[in-house]
């Protein structure tokens, strides 16, 4: 459990980092919090020849405009919890972050690292899907904006090309009064999730106006559940028919079993978590 030999490069600026990554192509990887890459290197599941340390770059802010929240690639997970506007505008994102690993991981892990690593159970990836976040990606030639739905392609596979680096994620602000909830299930607190559900709703006249539901554990990447979202819109907050929504989502998915959890269990769990997340989001909206 010692890495293969590699060369270490300290990036002095974003442009410098992009130059280095362009030069190394597939042999280079950016190093930020190291929470996934370093264990993978120690297990020799990853053996990049060049590590480009971007830890010192000025991509560390959560910034708000009138229409969006922009999260720099080097924003640590704990920063979401320290910024009150995150919980205000994106309650499900805020709640999701509390489920990321353990304090050490939240202290070191970065937004860019988590989104680029694209673990299928990652909380941030699910939240990015839920809130229709846009990934801001750069290389030496310029910048691309990629919708979360197009960014996460498969387990650990994203739309990032060699030489590209995620510099920020942009979350459009939901309408005022949006409520949300995030529920996760893992064998132990802090583990990779077996399943997780994020819900975000807007409200009008005591009813759900629009709903977004994102789910991990069903496929090798986080998914949205547009049918269930449609089903929910117009339902009263006091009776969202969450059980029916959960059953319907469970029936629509086809998760894969592992040696620790069966497919049937995952299916049932996703149905249950869906109902609970909807109920929690509605209860929160109703209590305001």
């Amino acid at each position: 459990m010692r890495p293969s030999s590699f060369r270490y490069h300290k990036a002095e600026s974003v442009d410098h980092a992009l130059e280095l990554l362009a030069r190394f192509g597939e042999d280079g990887r950016p190093l930020a919090g190291g929470q996934s890459l370093v264990p993978m290197m120690n297990l020799r599941l990853a053996a990049p020849e060049h590590l480009v340390d971007i830890g010192g770059l000025p991509l560390t802010d959560i910034a708000f405009t009138d229409t969006a929240m922009r999260v720099g690639a080097l924003v640590r997970h704990r920063q979401y919890l320290a910024e009150p506007r995150v919980a205000h505008h994106f309650p499900a994102l805020h709640e999701a972050v509390t489920w990321i690993g353990h304090p050490t991981i939240r202290e070191n892990g970065t937004t860019g690292g988590s989104l680029s690593h694209a673990d299928p159970t990652a909380e941030l990836a699910l939240a990015a899907m839920l809130y229709d976040a846009v990934m801001i990606v750069r290389n030496t030639a310029g910048e691309r904006r990629i919708a979360a739905a197009d960014f996460f392609e498969d387990a650990y596979v994203t739309a990032l090309q060699p030489g590209e680096m995620l510099v920020a994620a942009e979350f459009p602000l939901p309408p005022v009064g949006a409520a949300g909830a995030f529920v996760e299930f893992a064998e132990r607190r802090g583990d990779f999730a077996i399943a997780a559900i994020g819900v975000s709703i807007t409200v009008a006249d005591g009813r759900i106006a629009t709903a977004a539901i994102a789910c991990s554990g069903a496929e090798p990447r986080p998914i949205r559940a547009p049918e269930i979202e449609m089903m929910l819109s117009g339902r009263p907050l006091t009776d969202p028919q969450s059980r029916a929504a959960g059953r319907r989502l469970a029936a629509a998915i086809d998760p894969v079993g592992t040696f620790l959890t069966t497919a049937d269990y995952r299916k049932a769990l996703i149905g249950e978590l869906t109902a609970r997340a909807i109920d929690t989001a509605c209860a929160r909206a109703a209590s305001r």
């Binding site: 297990l43 064998e187 132990r188 607190r189 802090g190 583990d191 990779f192 040696f259 620790l260």
Partner: peptide
């Protein structure tokens, strides 16, 4: 062997 790291071989942690 399938449980060759602490990601799969689960020990009890403080919250449990």
């Amino acid at each position: 062997p399938l449980t060759t790291s602490f990601a799969d071989y689960l020990m009890p942690l403080a919250p449990e």
